[in-house]
């Protein structure tokens, strides 16, 4: 069950588990959400909002979502730029939307929920790009509205941050704003 070439969607047992966890984590301010909140440490070093536990997860997800768009040979610098950008957007979101996003990141990164929610049972550091892509595609086609929503949210947040910065522009032929 740790890789999933099986049909989109997850086993019934997992579905129930994720359904429950996911619903609680994302849709309420109490219950599991408060459990994850107490588990969650403060912001990671160098960040205002992102937690230390989110970083390995995002480092694996960002290059998969931006596959084909990142300049070759500068992976580390560009992924870092996206992390910094995401942190800045989180820092400007309304408290309600920020806590929804942080709860999504918690769900993806905390040991308690990661395996069931993503099918990535071992740590994010060891996840292959294929495993990450499988997880994204399962979320995209999940029967749970919550996962479909999470899939869209991850994509849009990362795409907006990446293409909003000059590092991205050579790839998409944008010369940048005019100078005067």
């Amino acid at each position: 069950m740790n890789t999933s070439t099986e049909q989109p969607g997850i086993s019934r047992r997992q579905l129930l588990r994720c359904g429950l966890l996911g619903t609680l984590v994302l849709a309420t301010a109490g219950g599991i959400a408060s459990v994850t909140r107490t588990l969650r440490s403060g912001p990671g070093t160098g960040y205002r909002q992102l937690r230390e536990s989110h970083i390995p997860m995002l480092r694996r997800i960002i290059p998969v979502i931006l596959d084909g768009a990142l300049p070759a040979g500068e992976a580390d610098a560009t992924v870092q730029a996206v992390l910094d950008g995401l942190d800045r957007s989180l820092d400007h979101l309304s408290p309600a939307m920020r806590s929804q996003s942080l709860q999504l990141f918690d769900l993806l990164s905390l040991d308690l929920t990661r395996g069931a929610a993503t099918g990535i049972w071992r740590s994010w550091e060891n996840a292959t790009s294929e495993q990450v892509a499988n997880f994204l595609s399962r979320w995209e086609h999940s029967r749970l509205a919550l996962f479909r929503q999470g899939y869209g949210a991850l994509n849009q947040a990362i795409l907006l941050v990446w293409y909003g910065q000059p590092l991205a522009w050579a790839h998409c032929g944008y010369p940048g704003p005019p100078r005067f």
Binding site: V64, I65, N155, L159, L160, W162, Y163, G164, Y174
Partner: peptide, 16 residues
């Protein structure tokens, strides 16, 4: 580009 990529919402190589 940020607006365009987000509206398009397409990740991975097809979006790129």
């Amino acid at each position: 580009p940020g607006f365009s990529a987000t509206v398009l919402g397409e990740p991975g190589t097809p979006g790129a």
